[in-house]
Every structure is written in structure tokens, then in C-alpha cells.
Simulated scan of single mutants.
Amino acid sequence: MEIIEVTGKPPYNKEPLTMVIGKFDGIHKGHEAILRTARQYMDKENDTLAVMTFSDNPLWVIKQDPNFKRKITRDIDKFDLLERFGFERFYRILFTKEYARTTAETFVLEHLSQLNVKRIIVGEGFRFGSGATSSTDALIGLCKQLKIDVIVVPSIKESGTKISSRHIRALIEDGLLEPAHSLLGRPFTITGKVVHGQKMGRKLGFPTINLGEIDEYVEPKPGVYLGVVGIHQNDVITEYYHVLISAGYRPTVKGEGYLVEAHLLNFSGDLYDKTVSVSFLRFMREEVNFNGLDALIEQMEQDKQDALQLIGQNE
């Protein structure tokens, strides 16, 4: 994946491009419909498939709305997913308050004109330009001046509700993993490096891996989850294990800050400094401030037995 950082006008390009434009947080089922449409045109025309998106959610940059600071998928996750659809180029616009003043006319007639774009594919609700006041109709009209075709992909609905990143983020934050998975088309997954912690889990008889480098991700509701961890080897996942995930603030041991740690079932070994991907499959219980470590250990043992029963490996 070729990554091109854009701080104003994109660099001139002469290769013919089929381009999708949008935030694409999560690469959910609605996004996949847009990506598949673009792929169909690439197969016919042999264009280079490209994505244009923002470095940050505009609602975070402009309004400092904390609900949009975190992401379902970081860019590094997006690259992998987009490559599976055949995309080769990623234009990442550094979105700032200054860039937010870019008008629809400037964006199309001055910025996109730098690129040899043959067609643009966007979702039905696409908005752009200063204040996000311009719709797909405006995009079609402006692109017509540059002889760029615009294809608008209808919104995808599930159970009568439009699939959106905002809705999926809310589900994850509420611990509703199953409906979030249904809209994403895959489990919610975070990828990070295993870091050294206080080794409290090991002292309690439940050694865990602590994940670092995950501050950008949406935070699942504090609690205990059943999940799966994939262990990376040279950027490829080579091993999978079921895990018991603890996400939250660890009040019983006076934890500081939100932490994700996972106890691997049926595993022994050292994973420090390894990159791992932890997928949240099912919410099991709320985070509890127990009256002492003995009560915590007893509940952790029960959690483990419940998890083993769910995966059909009763001890």
C-alpha cells in the first residue's frame, strides 16, 4: 500500500485512478459495498484503486467531541483490510481547522484536479466542503466540469437501520459485541504490543498479557469478555488462542487508567514485545470492585470455567 500524506493539494499524479472518498472508520459492511463497487470498475478499466480519507475525524478536530477521538480501526488496520480489496494507494489528508475551511469548489476543482481521477465512488450520505454543507449532488456537478464520473452507492441497512461507524462505536462502548460484529462483518479487534505491567495477574494465578499502543481505539465497556488472540510473526498471525479479556480500570487492585489485559487459555510462554491482535467476542460480566483479593481470585476462576464452557473445553 502506497501511503501519500496530504497537507493541502495532493501531489500531481498521471496514472488513471478509481477513487473512493470517505472516513471509512471500521471498514464495516456499508463501506465494503463502496469498496466492492470500486473494485468492479477497476477490473473493467485496469485503473489504480485509491482511497482518500482524513487523518482524524472532523468532529474531533473541529468540535473536540471526545466521542470521535477514538477509532474502530486505526490506519494500520485499514491498510490491511483495504489491500484485501485490491487498493494500492492511500491519500491521507491531514485534517486541521484550517483545512476544514476548504470549500467544495476548491476541493474538487483545485485539489482533485491534480489527480488523474476517472471516477469517484462515495456512499449515499457523503458530505464535503467547508462545514460539510455540500452533498453528492454538488460533487456530481463539480466533477462533471473535470469529466470525472461519480458513483453513489446506496446506504446498507440491517434490521431497518443504516449501518454507520457512529452506531458501531456506541455498541462497542456499551459492550454489545454481537450486534457490533454483525454490522462490521467481523469481530471488533485491537492490535498492540505486549508490554510489561505490574504482573498482578501472575501473582493471582492468572498470568495476563497487557496491551500497549491502543490509545487510539474505541474503549469497550469495562468488564470481562471472551475473546481470541492472534500472535503475529513477521506481520502475519501464526497462532490463535482463546482468551479471557479484562478491560477497564481494575478497581480492586487500585488500577490507574483504562487497561486491556488478556489471560490466554491453554497457553504457557513469554509474549513480551510480541505484536498481538485481540478480538472481543462476547461480554461476560461487568467490572466489579471486589472486597479483597480472595473474592477477586474466586470470581476469576469462575470466569475461566464459564469461558471454557462457552468454547466447549470444560475442565
Rank of each mutant, 00 (worst) to 15 (best):
S134G: 02
S134K: 10
S134R: 03
S134D: 09
S135I: 00
S135C: 01
T136P: 08
T136C: 15
T136M: 09
T136A: 06
T136K: 06
D137V: 04
D137T: 08
A138D: 15
L139D: 14
I140V: 12
G141Y: 00
L142A: 02
L142E: 04
C143Y: 05
C143F: 07
K147R: 15
K147S: 08
I148E: 03
V150W: 04
V150C: 13
V152Q: 10
P154L: 09
P154Y: 03
P154F: 05
P154K: 09
S155T: 09
S155Q: 13
S155V: 03
I156A: 10
I156D: 08
K157D: 06
K157Y: 12
E158F: 04
E158P: 00
E158D: 12
S159D: 08
S159P: 05
S159H: 12
T161V: 14
K162C: 06
I163Y: 04
I163S: 01
S164T: 13
S164W: 07
S164P: 00
S165W: 00
R166I: 12
R166V: 14
R166P: 00
I168Q: 07
R169Y: 08
R169A: 06
A170D: 13
A170F: 06
A170P: 00
I172S: 11
I172H: 02
E173H: 02
E173R: 04
D174R: 15
G175I: 00
G175D: 14
L176C: 10
L176G: 03
L177N: 14
E178L: 09
E178A: 14
E178P: 00
E178G: 01
E178I: 12
E178Y: 11
A180K: 13
A180I: 01
A180D: 11
S182P: 00
S182L: 06
S182G: 02
S182H: 11
S182Y: 07
L183D: 09
L183K: 08
L183A: 04
L183V: 11
L184N: 08
L184T: 02
L184A: 04
L184W: 09
L184G: 09
L184S: 10
G185S: 13
P187H: 07
P187Q: 09
F188Q: 12
T189Y: 03
T189D: 08
I190R: 12
G192R: 03
G192S: 02
K193S: 13
K193P: 00
K193M: 10
V194W: 03
V194G: 03
V194F: 05
V195M: 05
V195K: 04
V195T: 15
V195L: 01
V195S: 04
V195P: 05
H196M: 02
H196V: 11
G197I: 11
G197F: 14
Q198A: 14
Q198M: 14
K199S: 13
K199W: 02
K199L: 07
K199Y: 05
M200L: 13
G201E: 06
R202C: 00
K203N: 12
L204R: 08
G205Q: 11
G205C: 09
P207T: 04
P207W: 00
T208R: 01
T208Y: 07
I209Q: 02
G212F: 05
E213G: 00
I214Y: 10
I214C: 09
I214S: 06
D215F: 09
E216L: 11
E216S: 12
Y217S: 07
Y217R: 07
Y217K: 07
Y217P: 05
